[in-house]
Computed example of a mutant assay.
Amino acid sequence: MEGMTSASSALGSPMRHDRLLSALAAWQLPVEGTEPLTGGLNSTTWLVRAPGGVRYVAKLADTADAAAFAGGLRVAARAGRRGLAGGAPVALPDGRLAAELPEGVLALLEYVPGTVPDAGSPHDLRRLGAVLGRAHRLLADAVDDLPERLRWPWPWASARLREVPMPPHVRRAAAQVLDEAREATPLLRLGVVHGDPRLDGFRLSGGSSALDGLVGWDAVLHAPLLYDVACVAVLTRDTPRALRHVLDGYRTVDPAIVRDLDHLDLFVRLRWAVTAIHVAGRIARGALRGVSGSPEDNEAGLARAYAGMRG
């Protein structure tokens, strides 16, 4: 993300290429080379090449996000055991799923082949929706993989709103949206959600659609299933009719999602509230991971999030 041989550490300082190779040695696997991958809101990733054409993905998360990162690794491992290509973690020889480093928390993940969905392709978007619905179905009981604070009604969000410095008007707007979403809970179905289902997290197989995957589980949460749909709505907001095609695919796996859609606008606002909380936290920590490296980008992101919460 920040060049071919370095990436952001927990506070934005570079991690040298030799340091990455040294850290990867803990897995006791041969490595031929690495190259950075784009994308990722709260982490930095590299493609890791091993002999024989074998590939992995190395992911470095901020130390402050370690608990959520660990929960995502456990969920990805469960997804893999149940037949969903989710980028499951490769365990260290001692059984740990990640290594703690001065630069953050590093995991080595299985590489999931496939193409990223084309936002302009109704066919791709329907496949994306089907993968999301399948993930929700397969991980319905995975809540035990997550720490209590990440489970609905999200103690983590209340704590962040109390503790993270942010403009008062942003704090008030986020608190109001969170309260409204909690009040709607009795009308909605809960489950484990991906939390950040960007298009570049989906992998469409060149073969059977049963091999399609969803990677990047470091933002995983327990929440109303509608939250992931709202995330897709936000992330595809510049593509006309994209959400309609995604929902067409989702309904092939879970037709009951239509009963939740009356609350979609509220959960779109909740997605923006979550974005505001995360961006405010990055500003407070001086963290630049996942953005271009400019503090102004974080400030602009906070302004966008506030506008989104206002509808």
Results as ranks from 00 to 15, higher is better:
residue 126 R to T: 05
residue 106 L to S: 06
residue 174 A to K: 04
residue 144 D to N: 02
residue 127 R to F: 02
residue 193 V to S: 01
residue 196 D to T: 01
residue 126 R to S: 09
residue 137 R to K: 12
residue 168 P to M: 05
residue 153 P to K: 04
residue 154 W to P: 07
residue 189 R to I: 00
residue 160 R to S: 11
residue 166 M to N: 04
residue 176 Q to D: 15
residue 109 L to H: 09
residue 119 A to T: 00
residue 166 M to H: 03
residue 133 G to T: 13
residue 133 G to M: 12
residue 173 A to S: 15
residue 194 H to Q: 13
residue 168 P to Y: 01
residue 172 R to S: 14
residue 182 R to Q: 14
residue 178 L to G: 12
residue 125 L to T: 04
residue 191 G to L: 10
residue 202 F to Q: 10
residue 182 R to A: 10
residue 160 R to A: 15
residue 155 P to L: 01
residue 181 A to Y: 05
residue 163 E to P: 07
residue 115 T to K: 14
residue 201 G to L: 01
residue 135 A to C: 09
residue 116 V to G: 08
residue 195 G to D: 03
residue 145 D to L: 14
residue 192 V to D: 12
residue 113 P to H: 05
residue 149 R to S: 15
residue 124 D to I: 00
residue 180 E to A: 15
residue 192 V to I: 03
residue 161 L to P: 02
residue 164 V to G: 01
residue 111 Y to C: 04
residue 131 V to D: 13
residue 156 W to A: 13
residue 135 A to P: 03
residue 176 Q to S: 14
residue 186 P to Q: 12
residue 143 V to Y: 01
residue 189 R to L: 08
residue 128 L to F: 08
residue 141 D to P: 11
residue 159 A to E: 15
residue 183 E to G: 05
residue 165 P to A: 10
residue 157 A to G: 10
residue 157 A to Q: 03
residue 196 D to Y: 07
residue 190 L to C: 02
residue 198 R to A: 14
residue 144 D to I: 02
residue 109 L to A: 03
residue 150 L to D: 03
residue 154 W to F: 07
residue 139 L to S: 04
residue 190 L to F: 00
residue 122 P to C: 11
